[in-house]
Each structure stands twice: as C-alpha cells, then as structure tokens.
Amino acid sequence: MDTTHQPAPPASAPAPAPGRWAAVQPWVTLLARLALAGVLGYAAYTKLPPALSVQSVEAYQLFSPELAQLIGYTLPLFEFALALLLLIGLATRYVGAVTGLLMVVFIAGIVSAWARGLAIDCGCFGTGGQVAPGETQYGLDIARDLGFLALAGITMLWPRSPLSLDRLFGLYR
C-alpha cells in the first residue's frame, strides 16, 4: 500500500476531491508519460545523423570540439533511451526526474545562448546552428521546454499509471 500518495483513504473520507484525483491521476500520468516519450523520441530522431547534432551543440559555443562531438553523438541516443523507458513505464519516477533535469539543462543552455547574444537555432528538434539575428525564438523554446518540464514533473511526483512495467513489478499500484 502506497500510503505516501494517498493521504486520505477514500473509504473514510467524504471529501470527493482526493478520490476523484486518485481516479484521474493514473491517466493524467499516462498521458504525460506518452507525450514526453513522443517528444523525446521525435527530438532524438530529428537530430540524426549525428553530424547535424554535433553542429547544433557546437553552435552553443560552450564545449571543446571533442566534448561537443561526444554530446552530439550521445544526446540523441540518451533522449531515445528516455523515450523508450517512458513508453514502457520502467522506473517512471526516476526517469521522470532525469527527464525534468534534462529540460532544466536545456533551458539553461538556451538562456545562456540568449544572454550571450548568440543567434542560433536551439537545435531542440532537427538541425540547429546559426540563424539570422532576427530569427531566433529563444522565448518560445524556453516556454516549450517549461511545458515539457511540467510533464516530467507530473510523472515524477505521481508515477502511478496504467500500462507500465512498474505496475507489472508491483510498484506504484
């Protein structure tokens, strides 16, 4: 019995709100999980081939060429791995946390590019690199990543969801 997430036992509590949330929450988490999996999977797919991804990383001018190369190669793979884990619902809480952390890192990267006056595409999906100074859309990128961060937060705080391997292993029932 997961007592931490059901502070009010539905049987004894007449208040309807927690009960309704308890009923709806697994489906909300499922949606968040699948949406994030879709976003990450798509992001990983559009970053390939890795040469393009390396370009996107280099555009941030934060890393040495070797490090940019390594990140460019592994980041799409890491995103893909996270997407896979979210899809099958394995270690949902922790994968959600890591995904959220990744979004924070992305946002920090965009903020830093913005603050340094770089004119780049964030490279979040597909090809990044230089763009014309008027064509940056850092605000939009950050807002979007904040949305993803919220989804990651939901999966982290309420990992209970149907159609997950966690449930099969007896976690977050």
């Binding site: 791995a81 896979l84 394995l90 270690a91 922790y94």
Partner: peptide
C-alpha cells in the same frame, strides 16, 4: 532498486 537498475541497463545499452 531492481527497476532503477533495469532502467539504467536500458540507458547503457541504448546509449
């Protein structure tokens, strides 16, 4: 621990 370990293994294999 087991589930997190399995997830970690997936990440390592994929990446």
């Amino acid at each position: 621990l087991a589930v997190v370990g399995a997830a970690l293994a997936v990440v390592i294999v994929v990446v």
